[in-house]
Design a protein around this nucleic acid. Structure first.
Length: 182
DNA sequence: CCCTGATTCGC
DNA sequence: GCGAATCAGG
């Protein structure tokens, strides 16, 4: 693949939209994110600005022009309030009667988060215990005492044991989310 | 480990 | 000019 006008155009557009290099590469196809980044540099638009070099620096070793970009959306307030799902290990010891394990109670969890989970669970990979890996969401769904039980299996949020959606319900902002978003 | 962009350098 | 390899950071 080569950089046709059209492809370059798409590149520019997406880059300015804040898309990541890898996303752009995927969209374009036939190129890697490295290619995209390389091109971005050659086009001189490493800084996601329309093209207004407000900083006329002549530095050679200017390490950091500062990046006023949103970047990673990481909210840090890890205080597990909503009971994290129990270990799969207790699978068999459940009185198969009715005292079902407290399905991560839908107490005061963000309605949005719950809605998100419901959606996610529909497209979940539904993997089994054995299929769990370091980077698969380990959120259990269903009744461990029945066949109707599986793990989410979606890609986990970096660091966390669950996917984004499940991290959302697993880690409550400790109160009933009071603060405002960023 | 996953991901991000930045840089280098042989082609 | 191109982009894989590498680097630096989250």
């Amino acid at each position: 693949m080569s950089w046709t006008d059209e492809r370059v155009e798409t590149l520019k557009r997406m880059w300015n939209e804040g898309q990541s290099a890898s996303q752009i590469a995927k969209e374009l196809g036939g190129v890697t994110r490295n290619a995209v980044i390389g091109k971005v540099h050659r086009l001189g638009l490493s800084n996601r600005s329309g093209g207004a070099p407000a900083a006329p620096a002549k530095e050679k070793a200017a390490p950091k022009p500062a990046t006023p970009k949103p970047m990673m959306t990481e909210s840090a307030s890890p205080k597990p309030t909503a009971a994290p799902p129990m270990s799969p290990a207790r699978k068999a010891i459940i009185p198969a009667g009715q005292p079902l394990p407290p399905q991560p109670s839908a107490n005061e969890i963000s309605p949005e988060a719950l809605a998100k989970v419901n959606e996610v669970e529909k497209s979940a990979k539904k993997i089994s215990l054995m299929e769990l890996t370091e980077r698969t969401c380990k959120w259990p769904v269903g009744d461990p005492a029945t066949e109707d039980f599986w793990f989410c299996g979606l890609p986990v949020q970096q660091g966390k044991p669950y996917c984004e959606a499940h991290v959302g319900v697993a880690f409550q902002p400790m109160s009933s989310r009071r603060d405002r978003r960023r």
